[in-house]
Design a protein around this nucleic acid. Sequence first.
RNA 1: GGGCAAGUGGCGGAAUGGCAGACGCGCACGGUUCAGGUCCGUGUGUCCGAAAGGACGUGGGGGUUCAAGUCCCCCCUUGCCCACCA
Length: 950
Amino acid sequence: MTEPSDTPPYRYTAETARRIELAWQDRWAAEGTFHTPNPTGALSAGFDEVVGRPKLYINDMFPYPSGAGLHVGHPLGFIGTDVFARFQRMNGHHVLHAMGFDAFGLPAEQYAVETGQHPRLTTAANIDNYRRQLRRLGLGHDPRRSVATADVGYYRWTQWIFLQIFNSWFDIAAQRGRPIAELIAELDAGSREPGPGTDPFGLPWAELSASQRREVVNNHRLAYLSKATVNWCPGLGTVLANEEVTADGRSDRGNFPVYRRPMKQWMMRITAFADRLLADLDRLDWSDSIKLMQRNWIGRSTGATITFGTEAGPGIEVFTTRPDTLFGATYMVLAPEHPLIAALTPPQWPAGVPESWTAGAASPTEAITAYQRAAAQRSELERQVEAKTKTGVFAGSFAVNPATGTRIPVFIADYVLMGYGTGAIMAVPGQDQRDWDFAVAFDLPIVRTVQPSAGFDGAAYTGEGPAINSANATLDLNGMGVAAAKAAMIGWLAGVGAGVPSITYKLRDWLFSRQRYWGEPFPIVYGDDGLPQPLPEDLLPVELPDMEDFSPTTSEDENSEPEPPLGRARDWVPVRLDLGEGEQEYRRELNTMPQWAGSCWYELRYLDPTNDAVFVDPEVERYWMGPRFVGDTGGVDLYVGGVEHAVLHLLYVRFWHKVLFDLGHVSSEEPFRRLFNQGYVQAYAYKDERGRYVDADKVEQRDGRYFLGEQELRREFGKMGKSLKNSVTPDEMYAEYGADTLRLYEMFTGPMDQSRPWETKAVVGSMRLLQRIWRVVVDEHTDAVRTADAPVPVDTMRVLHRTIAAVRDGMQTLRFNIAIAKITELTNHLTTTYADGGVPVAVAESLVLMLAPLAPHAAEELWSMLGHPESLTWQAFPVADAAYLVDDTVEIPVQVNGKVRSTVVVPADADAAGMETAARADEKIAAHLDGHSVRKVITVPGRLINFVLT
RNA sequence: GGGCAAGUGGCGGAAUGGCAGACGCGCACGGUUCAGGUCCGUGUGUCCGAAAGGACGUGGGGGUUCAAGUCCCCCCUUGCCCACCA
C-alpha cells in the first residue's frame, strides 16, 4: 500500500506497525521474554529471579486447528487474556500463559478426509498456520509450553491417565476414587463385598474363577466396557456421547441422524462423582449461569425409591420425587426397554380388558413386541412432536399400591425413559400432567391427593396444598403440606419395608469410545477370555498406526455395524505380550478415545510439557495450581473461553481432575478456580435470491437495503465463517492496520463477556488512537522525540492520575473497553493541551506503560524511543496517586424538584450549608425558587443538591 | 413448556440509586491539500426556538424514592440453555 506523498514521513502507519511488530516479536522470541520458569525441573532456569512474586496461571480454551485458519473472531479471548497477563506481569506477578492445540478428533479428521491427505499432515500444517497467525498477534505466551494433543509425547500421558482411571474404583462410603488394587486386596481379605450390581455370579469371592473375579473387578472400574443403549451415527460411522446429540436426534457435528442402539462401548463412571461435581460448584468463581447449566445437567433429584409388589412375581422399583402422592398412584408405567417386561407379561389378556389397552393385539406379548418395535423406530424428533399424545399398551398384569392395597394396572409407554431413575414410574395423574394425559387417553382413574387451589380443575395440580384422600390404617397424611407429607410417607415406607429415600441424577455415564481413526488408541488389549486388560505403563505410548486408509466406514443404513478403521491395521492389532500369565497373543482395542480426552488435562501439561517421567511434576503442579488457603479448590487462576463448553468440556475436565486428585497425582481439587466466558465476534452474512451466500465485503447498502450489483440480498446476523462468506482474517487486518490496531479494536468493541458485531470500517478508530499516542511522543516530520523534560502541571497530573485509576480498574475487571476509553481521553487531553509538543516526559511514559498491555509493540517501540533500552514487560504499571484524584473544588448539579436546573462550583469539602448557600446564590436557581416555598433540601456532599418545593 | 440473560442515539457501547448517552464509528461543517482520506478541528438523542432556554427521552405499563437506565411487580421482544427427567 502506497502512502500519499504528503503524509508526514514518520507517522504511525500500517507500515510502521508491520516493521515494529515483526521486530519486537523477533526480539521477544530471541530474548525469551515470555519464558516462564518453573520452581523445579527442565524449565526452572531463572526461577531465582521471580521467586518472591505472586504466581498467576492464565489459560485459554485451546483451539481446534481447522484448515480455514483463524478469522478475527477466534482470537478475541486470546487477546483478552494476553492483555490481562501483560497487565499482571507489570504488577509484579509471575504469570504463566501458554497456548496449545486440540488436534485430535472429528474436525481434523473430516478436513483430512475432504482434502484426501493424512490427518497427521493436515493437522501439522494447520497448527503451523495457527502458530504463525497467533505469533503475529504478539501474544506473550511461553512458546516452549505449546503442546498438541496429537503429539505422541502428549497422548502418551492421555493414555497414562486413562490407565489411572481404568485402574480405579469409586468408594461410595469415602466418596472418592481409589486404586483398584486396594479393592482387590479388600475383596481378597474378605473385608469388603462387591458393590451393588457388580457381581453377576452370586458366589462368594473365594469361589470365583480368576476370569470371574476379573469381571467383578471390571464392574467396579471408573472406565468400563458396557453393552448399553448408545447413540449410533451411521453417517459419521461412530457412536456419540449424549452430549454430542442434538435435541432433534442428530449429530452435533455434521447433522446426521442418530439412532439408539445397544452396543458394547467404553464408558466412564462420571456419575459416581455427581455429588462432588455438584457440591464443588459452590467453591468455584464461575458465573452463576454456567454453574446453573452444570447443575441442571447433573440434575440431582431427591425423593424415594418405592417397591410395588406385582401379581406376576417380581417387584417393580420406581423413583419418585413426590412420595407424598403415593395414595394417588392409580397405575404404573415401564419404559419399553425395561428388563422386567417379559416377566410381567402373561400369555393371555386378563378378562375384561378394554380394547384401548390392548391395541387390538391377540396377546400381551404381541401387543408389547409391536409397541417396542414402533417405539424404537420413532426418532427423537417424532417423540417430541408427538409428546402431547400419549401412547402405550397394557402389560397384561397388575401391581399393588403399597399405600392403598389397590390393584393397579401396569403399562408400557415411551413417555417413561429407561435412562432415568429406574425406568419405571408410579403414575399419579392427579399431580402430574403427563400421567393425567395418559390417564385421560386410557380411561384410568384419577385421584387427587393434594387439594388444588380454589377454581382449579381439568388438569394435574402440581402446586402446594394440603394432602387429601391420603390415609390408611397406619398412616394419615391428610391436611399436611407437601414437604411434611413427603417426610411422613418416607418414614412410613421405610417402616413397612416398601421404600427408601433416594437420589437420582440426569447425568449418565460418559460414553468414551469412538469408531474413528484420528484419536488416542486405548492402552487396552483383549486376551482369549475377551476381557479387557490394561497395558503396563512401560508399554506406553501405544502409537496410532500409520494407515493409508483412515476413513471411517459410514453408512446410510441405521442397522449397519460400527467398523473401526483401526481394525484394518492388520499388523498392529495382534500383539504378543506377557501380562503376568506367560507370553500370549492379545488383540488391541480398535476404538479410539473421543476428542474430549486430550482437552481433559492440557492445563496440567502446560505446566511441565517436556517431562517424560511424569505427566506433571507434583511440585510444579502445587506451585501453579495448588490451593492457597484452607478450603480453596486450587486450579488455574483464570480460564477464559466460550460458553459452548459450559457442560461438555467443563464437566469432563473436572471429572478427570477429581480422579487425579483422589489418586494423589495433583494437589488441586478443581482444574479451574475462576472461569470467564467471553462473548463472540459476530458478523452479517448476505444471501441472494437463490439462498447462496455472497461475499459480504462486496455488498452495497442503499436506503437500508442490501445489494450485490442490482440484486437485492437478504441479511442475516450470526457467526463469522468461511462458508458464510463473511470471514475477515487477522492477516488482512495485519496488512491494513497492524496487530496492535486489531488488538485495540477487538478489546474496544465491548466488555469481554459480551458478543459484538465485527465492523471493519470502525477499525480505523483504533488506528487513529495509536497515531495520536505516537504523535505525543514522536515528531512525525523528524522522528525526534518531542516530549519535554519538564515538571508536570497540576491539571495534567489530575487528568493523568484519574486515568491511571480508571485504566487499572478496567484492566483488573477485564473491561478493557473502559480502559481504552480512558486512555483515549488522556490522549485527547494531551494532544489539545500540548498541541505543539512538549508533553512532560513523565506523563508520556505513563501513557506508554498504560498502553503496553493493549498494544505492546507500539508501546515497546515508544518506550525505547523514550530512552529505555530494555523491554517494558517488567516495568511497573503506573499507580494512581490519591492526592490527585480529588479536586479542590467540584462542580455539582443543582436540582429543583429532581430536575437539574443549574450547576455550581463549590469547595470539594463543602458541607450541606455551604452547598445550599452556593446553590441559592445561583441566578437560575434563585429564579426557580422565587415565589415557592422550599419544603425540603437534599444535599449529598460533593455530589448533588436538590430543592423540593411544596 | 421450563430456566437463565439482555433490551439505552443511525451503529458498538458508558453510567457506586445522584448532571443519561463517556469513548469510538458514522454523519455534518470547517481546516490542511491540486485532489483524495488511514490527517486535524468543531458539532452531532428527539422536538420547539435565531438564541437564551424549554419540553420529552433508556422496550411497554404500574410502584418505591427528594431522585430510577439502575430497586420492586406485571407485560412484550430478543438471545442462550434445557426439554415427556417422574
